[in-house]
Design a protein around this nucleic acid. Sequence first.
DNA 1: TTGCTCCTCACGTCACGTGAGGTGGC
DNA 2: TTGCTCCTCACGTCACGTGAGGTGGC
Lengths: 193, 193
Amino acid sequence: MTPEQRTWKIGELAAATGLSVRSLHHYDEIALLRPSSRSPSGHRLYAGADVRRLHRIVALRGFGLTLTEIGRLLDGEVPDPRGLIRRQLDQVETQLAAAIQLHDRLLEVLNALDATEAPSDRTLLNLIEGMTTMTRLTQHELDEMTARRTEFRDSLTPTELADLEASRRQALESMTESELEEMRQRRAAMMPR
Amino acid sequence: MTPEQRTWKIGELAAATGLSVRSLHHYDEIALLRPSSRSPSGHRLYAGADVRRLHRIVALRGFGLTLTEIGRLLDGEVPDPRGLIRRQLDQVETQLAAAIQLHDRLLEVLNALDATEAPSDRTLLNLIEGMTTMTRLTQHELDEMTARRTEFRDSLTPTELADLEASRRQALESMTESELEEMRQRRAAMMPR
DNA sequence: TTGCTCCTCACGTCACGTGAGGTGGC
DNA sequence: TTGCTCCTCACGTCACGTGAGGTGGC
């Protein structure tokens, strides 16, 4: 007699959320999202609670968390969610630094290439070889950077950590007004489309 | 009687380049870098030419190319290296845009979390759920963004393309002096360590 | 009966990491 | 003989994509 008896079949849910049916199968397999019932013929039937859980999954996925982390978070097995987000932030900053470097190097190569008549792949290779000494970051090195950051963080006392975060927030907030917007404009200008 | 008879064993090469032995095994497997000879007992022996090829591989890998692309480039099977670099640039810009967005969202969540007393994961979930409507990018969507960019590019005439690139170069060059440096400073300021 | 949706395997992806089990001495 | 390096399989990773082959009608 409870309301909300409506259920969704997997295809309906997929269409509604933009996920693939295969993704929902996958979430079921890894026990991240199991439909609360099945039809007599074995079809997955998702109830309202399932749909709400799915929305959270999608949101958290948008934050770059792995499906395992999402599962633990949703099941209340994460003692320090703030720490989780902080680690995410560290990781993204590491990636960002690497991407910016790579972006700059690619632009340099492209400029040099454009300055050359009929650039052959020989030219390209010579160019690139000339840049070999520049810092290049592999996935492994990225992981290590992130690890070092985390390590550094963990070496701080709670007070020091609080200070560090306060100062970063302040740095960001102090430029929030026009500068931040300006920064975004520039970034946007660099991105075609 | 030619000079340069020196060869390297796989462990020596790995130690010298910082790569893992397994990576070199992998490059051999996929025919990206096969040692020019083997010892009687079957040990891989890398000659000078192999080492030079490896240096190029490492350099190109630093540009985010896949091993397949690197192989084709080194074997002269890429008709338009400039196009290859351009596509790389597009991809990196797409990633960059996504990473910046994610970074900003994570900061927001962290700030909101810090403003709360004893934040539980419930708090976190509510917060994040409130942001669900924000643009979130999956890998698939990123791929599509890059695809659209490439598509857009391919729809241009050579003249239009040249104009586009010229204007981008100009935009970058016009701010090269102090502005570009300033931009880097700001970026650096946002990155702890 | 014909579509359309659903089901369960199961292999492939990308660049290796990580043992397992065994041989050789650049 | 004891290490150390080398060898060849071969499974695992992460989040699914992509068929294959078959059943059911929320």
